[in-house]
Amino acid sequence: MYDVNTHDVRRFFADVWQKRLQPLSLDALQRKALAIIETHPEYHRYLDNIEAYLDKVWTPEEGESNPFLHMSLHLS
């Protein structure tokens, strides 16, 4: 079982996004994550400003979906 918390997942995606211009530095999992990120331009603003979104809670009641959960489901 993996011991990963919300901040780790969010930072993982943000780190991959920051490294997108250096694709040779990405491992296989990161390349797969980058492909997912690239298909979701609506999430790029979160990745560009990750510190502001580390503790954000997206709720269905507010008509929101969690972009990091969404990308994680694609990745899994």
Rank of each mutant, 00 (worst) to 15 (best):
R10P: 03
R11H: 11
F12N: 07
F12W: 13
F12R: 11
F12K: 13
F12V: 09
F13C: 01
A14E: 05
A14T: 06
A14Q: 09
A14M: 08
D15Q: 07
D15L: 06
V16A: 02
V16F: 01
V16C: 00
V16D: 00
W17A: 01
W17S: 00
Q18A: 04
Q18F: 01
Q18R: 03
Q18S: 01
Q18H: 04
K19I: 07
K19H: 08
R20G: 01
L21Y: 11
L21S: 10
L21P: 04
L21F: 12
Q22N: 02
Q22R: 03
Q22G: 02
P23E: 07
P23R: 10
L24D: 01
S25R: 01
S25G: 03
S25K: 03
L26S: 03
L26F: 05
D27K: 00
D27H: 00
A28F: 10
A28N: 09
L29H: 07
L29M: 12
Q30D: 09
Q30F: 09
Q30H: 11
R31H: 01
R31T: 00
R31Q: 04
R31N: 01
R31L: 03
K32R: 04
K32V: 04
K32P: 03
A33Q: 01
A33E: 02
A33Y: 00
A33T: 03
L34W: 03
L34R: 05
L34H: 06
I36R: 07
I36K: 04
I37M: 08
I37W: 08
E38T: 05
E38N: 07
E38Y: 04
H40L: 02
H40P: 01
H40E: 06
H40N: 05
P41V: 03
P41D: 06
Y43W: 11
H44D: 13
R45K: 14
R45Y: 14
Y46A: 10
Y46L: 07
Y46V: 09
L47E: 10
L47P: 05
L47S: 07
D48Q: 11
D48P: 05
N49F: 08
I50M: 04
I50A: 06
I50K: 07
E51I: 14
E51G: 11
A52R: 12
A52E: 10
Y53H: 11
Y53I: 10
Y53L: 12
L54W: 02
D55T: 11
K56L: 02
T59Y: 15
T59P: 14
T59C: 14
T59N: 15
P60T: 15
G63Q: 10
E64P: 10
E64H: 12
E64T: 12
E64N: 13
S65H: 15
N66A: 12
N66K: 13
P67W: 07
P67F: 06
F68M: 03
F68I: 02
F68N: 01
L69R: 14
L69F: 14
L69V: 14
L69Q: 14
L69T: 14
H70D: 15
H70K: 15
H70L: 12
H70P: 11
H70I: 13
M71T: 11
H74T: 13
H74C: 15
H74I: 14
H74A: 15
